[in-house]
Design a protein around this nucleic acid. Structure first.
Length: 298
DNA sequence: TTGCAGGGGTCAA
DNA sequence: TTGACCCCTGCA
């Protein structure tokens, strides 16, 4: 059975949901541009991961997006929003191609999409990201899920959901530290407790201005500007942020400023120059900078 | 083999 | 404005 859904032709086949005519989509770009930590590349180029309470294998070839372990209902309830399929990335790329630098970055990461991830999971993941490397972040998030989440069996293998607020808030610090988060564990625990007791209401962030949402998130320990902006952007809450980490700083200094620049200079420039598309621009630039080791002298 | 620097930041002084 | 911070990896 083939049905039409929001402009896409979708069908269910052998336990998979298949979406046709998907443009501007490349799993490598999407899953390895630093926005998510739970998708693992398989030898055949597919990616396995967990979203909400669903494990799946994702493949993409020639406009055809295949998501295993899923039905059409799952596409409607989870995957369509998660992969931001309702957004025209060609249009975004066209609008952002305003100079040679952006053109190059977009050409390189042409298949990037901003995932709409769970706000709570994104918040904890980016607290873990502070002064840390991607493989380590993935290990810690995986360990937390395995220790506190629920098991899901797919193709005979075990996967784990990311734990809910109560689960983490009720943990002992010593147990959380077994997940190897180091000094960030106390931040995670305190943050979970603050969400649980209502000190900060994550659901209210969407109704705030971007600046208000950032300040609200910074009330959590372990959350500064960078972590707050990543949380806002990668949960699909707001798109007019420009998370500025060392890579983005390097690429901006080397390619736009031609000199050392402060964080606030970069923030102001991005707001003026990229405006409401700053978050998308950041992803193309970050991916380009990191893959090319821009500004590291290598 | 052992030792040391440093990493997609944040906090505290 | 500057160092410390858990843990791990890469590289002498």
């Amino acid at each position: 059975m083939v049905i039409n859904y929001k402009g896409y032709e979708i069908k269910e086949q052998e336990g998979k949901v298949i979406v046709n005519n998907v443009r501007d989509f490349n799993p490598v770009h999407i899953f390895e541009c630093g926005q998510c930590f739970r998708w693992i590349r398989q030898e055949d180029g597919s990616y396995t991961g967990v979203v909400k309470d669903k494990a799946a294998v994702v493949r993409y070839m020639n406009g055809k997006l295949e998501i295993s372990n899923s039905a059409i209902e799952d596409l409607k309830n989870i995957w369509f929003d998660y992969f931001d399929l309702g957004r025209d990335y060609s249009e975004i790329k066209r609008r952002l191609s305003k100079d040679e630098i952006m053109k190059k970055a977009i050409e390189f990461g042409y298949g990037i999409r901003l995932l709409k991830q769970d706000l709570w999971e994104t918040l904890i993941s980016f607290i873990i990201s502070a002064n840390n490397r991607i493989p380590m972040i993935m290990k810690v998030v995986g360990a937390i899920s395995e220790m506190y989440g629920s098991e899901i069996i797919m193709d005979g293998k075990s996967y784990y959901t990311f734990p809910d607020v109560d689960k983490l808030a009720g943990s002992a610090l010593e147990q959380l530290e077994m997940c190897r988060g180091g000094f960030r564990c106390k931040y995670i625990l305190k943050t979970a407790q603050m969400v649980k007791d209502g000190t900060v209401n994550l659901a209210s962030l969407a109704n705030m201005t971007t600046d208000e949402a950032r300040e609200e998130l910074k009330r959590f320990p372990g959350v500064g500007n960078k972590v707050a902006d990543c949380t806002i952007l990668y949960s699909g809450t707001k798109y007019d942020v420009f998370p500025t980490d060392v890579w983005v700083k390097r690429v901006m200094e080397e390619l736009y400023f031609g000199r050392p620049a402060t964080f606030s200079e970069i923030q102001n420039f991005a707001a003026d120059y990229f405006g409401e598309l700053a978050g998308f621009a950041q992803q193309y630039l970050f991916y380009y900078a990191r893959e090319h080791k821009i500004g590291t002298g290598k």
